[in-house]
Write a protein that binds this DNA or RNA. Structure first.
Length: 347
DNA sequence: CAACCGTGGCC
DNA sequence: TGGCCAAGGTT
C-alpha cells in the first residue's frame, strides 16, 4: 500500500517554489510574522474565481490603487466599479463585490469575519472563497477545494468516478490531508501544484513533490484523470446592436439590467438575442447602415451580432447619450467593445 | 440541482 | 481554429 501524500513534503516544495503574486505573502515573510490583509485576500480570491492569475494581476493592482481598503471600495460609485471590472467577466462578481464591501464596511466595522461560517454569509462568498479567506488570511485549518485541488486529489487518490459527481468524494479526500500547521500556505501550495505541475495537460510528474505517493502515476492514468462528463454543444444566437453617434461625439448607450447576462454593465441598445434575430425597432430614428458582424462566445452560447451605425441628434426612445468626455471604451464588456471597435476603428 | 454566468490563452 | 480550460457562486 502506497503512503498517503504528505502535506509537509508539499509545504517544503512551496517554501522553495511559491510564485510571486501581488496579493500573496510569501512563505518567508509569512514565517517572519507578516500577516496578509484580509481585504486583499478576499478581493484576489473573488477575482480568481474561474479566472487565471495572469488575467487578474493588473485588475488587482488597479483596484487596490483606486480603493486601498474595504471602506474605500464600499464608498465607490457602482458605475466606477463595474467599469474597472469590465473585461474580467462574470459580472455578478463585481455586483456582489460591492454588496459585500458595503456589508463589511457598514455592519462589521470594516473587518472581515475570520470563520468559514461568517464569511459564507457574505454576498459572492461561497464554499471555496470562505475557506480560502479563512485559511489564507487567518491561518485557520479549513480545506480549500477548487478545480486545481479536485484535479490533484483525483490523481493522487486515483478517483475514477467522473466530475461533477465526484466532487463530494474529492472534497472529503482533500480534507484528510489538510494540516493543522500552516493551513493557509498549504492551501496555496496545493493550488500552485495544480497550476504549475499537476496541470490538466502536459503534466510534469517528473518534478512533482508527490510523485512517489501518487496512485494515478503508479497506474499510468494521471493524464486521464479527473474524468469528466461530456459537454453539450453551444447553440447560436443572433441579434442586432445599434451604435448611434451625436454630432458632438456623444454615444447612445444603456446600462443593462442588474441581473442576467452582462448585468449592470454598459452596452449598446439593440434587439434581444435569439435563434433568429427577434423583431425590434432601432433605439432612435436615423439612417442606419450595417458596418459588419461581431462573433462572441459566451459560457453557454455563441453570439452573432449585426452592428448598425448612424449619426443623429434625434431624441432616442431607448438609452442615454453619453458625452465623449465621460465615455470610456474600456468600461465596456468584451462583446460591446468588439462592436465599438468595428464601428469606430482606431486611427 | 442543473442552468446560468465571461474571458483570454493554449494546443 | 475551435474546443478546452481557469483559485466558483447564485438561483
Amino acid at each position: 500500500m502506497r503512503d498517503a501524500p504528505d502535506p509537509g513534503v508539499l509545504l517544503a516544495w512551496y517554501d522553495m517554489h511559491a510564485r510571486e503574486m501581488p496579493w500573496r505573502i510569501g512563505p518567508a515573510a509569512r514565517a517572519a510574522g507578516v500577516w496578509p490583509d484580509p481585504y486583499r485576500v478576499w478581493l484576489s480570491e473573488v477575482m480568481l474565481q474561474q479566472t487565471t492569475v495572469a488575467a487578474v494581476r493588473d485588475y488587482f493592482r488597479r483596484f487596490t490603487a483606486l480603493w486601498p481598503t474595504v471602506s474605500d471600495l464600499a464608498a465607490a460609485e457602482d458605475a466606477a466599479v463595474m467599469g474597472e471590472w469590465a473585461g474580467l467577466g462574470y459580472y455578478a462578481r463585481a455586483r456582489n463585490l460591492l454588496k459585500c464591501a458595503r456589508v463589511v464596511a457598514g455592519e462589521l466595522g470594516g473587518r472581515f469575519p475570520d470563520t468559514r461560517e461568517g464569511l459564507l454569509a457574505l454576498p459572492g462568498v461561497g464554499p471555496y472563497t470562505a475557506a480560502a479567506v479563512s485559511a489564507i488570511a487567518f491561518d485557520r485549518p479549513e480545506t480549500v477545494v477548487d478545480g486545481n485541488v479536485e484535479r490533484v486529489m483525483a490523481r493522487v487518490f486515483a478517483v475514477e468516478a467522473p466530475l461533477p459527481g465526484s466532487k463530494k468524494e474529492l472534497a472529503r479526500l482533500a480534507a484528510t490531508l489538510t494540516p493543522a500547521e500552516r493551513p493557509g500556505d498549504y492551501a496555496q501550495a496545493v493550488m500552485d501544484l495544480g497550476a504549475t505541475i499537476c496541470t490538466p495537460r502536459s503534466l510534469a510528474c517528473g518534478i512533482c513533490p508527490w510523485m512517489a505517493d501518487c496512485a494515478a502515476r503508479a497506474q499510468g492514468v494521471a493524464t486521464d484523470l479527473p474524468r469528466k462528463a461530456p459537454k453539450s454543444v453551444k447553440p447560436v444566437r443572433r441579434g442586432v446592436a445599434y451604435l448611434a453617434r451625436r454630432p458632438d461625439g456623444a454615444w447612445l448607450v444603456e446600462t443593462r439590467p442588474e441581473t442576467g447576462l452582462l448585468g449592470g454593465m454598459l452596452g449598446w441598445p439593440g434587439s434581444d438575442w435569439a435563434t433568429s434575430v427577434p423583431d425590434h425597432v432601432p433605439p432612435v430614428a436615423a439612417e442606419w447602415r450595417e458596418v459588419g458582424e461581431v462573433r462572441h462566445t459566451f459560457t453557454h452560447f455563441q453570439l452573432i451580432l449585426t452592428i448598425m451605425k448612424a449619426e443623429t441628434d434625434a431624441v432616442p426612445e431607448r438609452g442615454d447619450w453619453m458625452t465623449s468626455d465621460r465615455f470610456r471604451p474600456s468600461d465596456l464588456p468584451r462583446v460591446m467593445r468588439k462592436a465599438f471597435d468595428l464601428a469606430d476603428p482606431a486611427p
